[in-house]
């Protein structure tokens, strides 16, 4: 059985935020809720990299472990989903999640948490597939259409991959193998030192000085 995973290739992500927009559009999430976000590291300096992050659908999900009402479940495809009818909005999953995936619509003046909302891997929730309630509560259900999450499928540089962990890993492995050298190739800098192998022109310069 497939085990659904996301993978963001930091070498390819150009922080266009297309995935964020796609997610909002596909699932029509309420105002103030961001199931997916793009974080840019070393912003504006050499070595800048971006990573798109959402619920990672953990195998040992912390949210599931701490939920006081047990409203989380794994589907057979390894997608972590939850029942919003049961959710009490206590915020424990938000404390436990390392990725900041759980989101809460704020209700009322004192910031009382509403029912938790998070990435569903475009798999809807525990309502009849493609029903009105399912779309209202959890957003679209692309998995039931034989499609993958929209964020990954419409990623322009194919930085964000989604789907069966084995296939995603295979694709990424192929990529890493095909990459030339230097930072692009995984493990290169570690194996050949901090500088890696310099281009030929640099070596020629060193020789003349």
């Amino acid at each position: 059985m497939a085990r659904m995973k996301f993978l963001c290739d930091s070498e390819r992500c150009i922080s266009c935020n297309g995935c964020v927009t796609a997610c909002k559009n596909e699932n029509e999430v309420p105002w103030g809720i961001n199931r997916r976000r793009v974080v840019t590291l070393s912003d504006g300096v050499p070595g800048e990299k971006s990573i798109s992050v959402a619920c990672m659908h953990c195998s040992d999900a912390p949210c599931m472990a701490v939920c006081p009402v047990d409203c989380f479940y794994h589907t057979d495809e390894g997608v972590v989903l939850h029942d919003k009818d049961m959710c009490i909005g206590c915020g424990y999953c938000f404390y436990a999640c390392p990725f900041g995936a759980p989101q809460y619509p704020q209700m009322g003046t004192f910031g009382v948490r509403g029912k938790m909302d998070k990435c569903t891997f475009c798999a809807g929730g525990p309502e009849p597939d493609h029903s009105e309630e399912e779309f209202k509560k959890y957003g679209g259900n692309r998995l039931a259409d034989g499609k993958l999450p929209l964020c990954a499928e419409m990623c322009s540089t194919k930085a964000l991959l989604a789907g069966d962990g084995d296939i995603v890993a295979e694709i990424f492995r192929g990529r890493a193998l095909n990459r030339g050298k230097g930072a692009d190739l995984w493990g290169w800098g570690t194996a050949y030192g901090k500088e890696g192998v310099k281009p030929k022109s640099d070596k020629a310069k060193e020789g003349t000085s």
């Binding site: 930091s10 935020n17 964020v20 103030g32 961001n34 976000r37 793009v38 974080v39 840019t40 590291l41 070393s42 912003d43 050499p46 070595g47 990299k49 990573i51 900041g100 230097g182 930072a183 493990g187 290169w188 800098g189 570690t190 050949y192 901090k194 500088e195 890696g196």
Partner: peptide, 28 residues
């Protein structure tokens, strides 16, 4: 030149320090 590996990247990822993002909110 940036270092020819992603050590700093993954250190930053694990550091828990806030980085740049366009998404507004607490600790996004």
């Amino acid at each position: 030149q940036p270092p020819h590996n992603n050590v700093k990247l993954w250190q930053d990822v694990r550091s828990g320090q806030p980085q740049f993002t366009t998404v507004r909110g607490v600790e996004t």
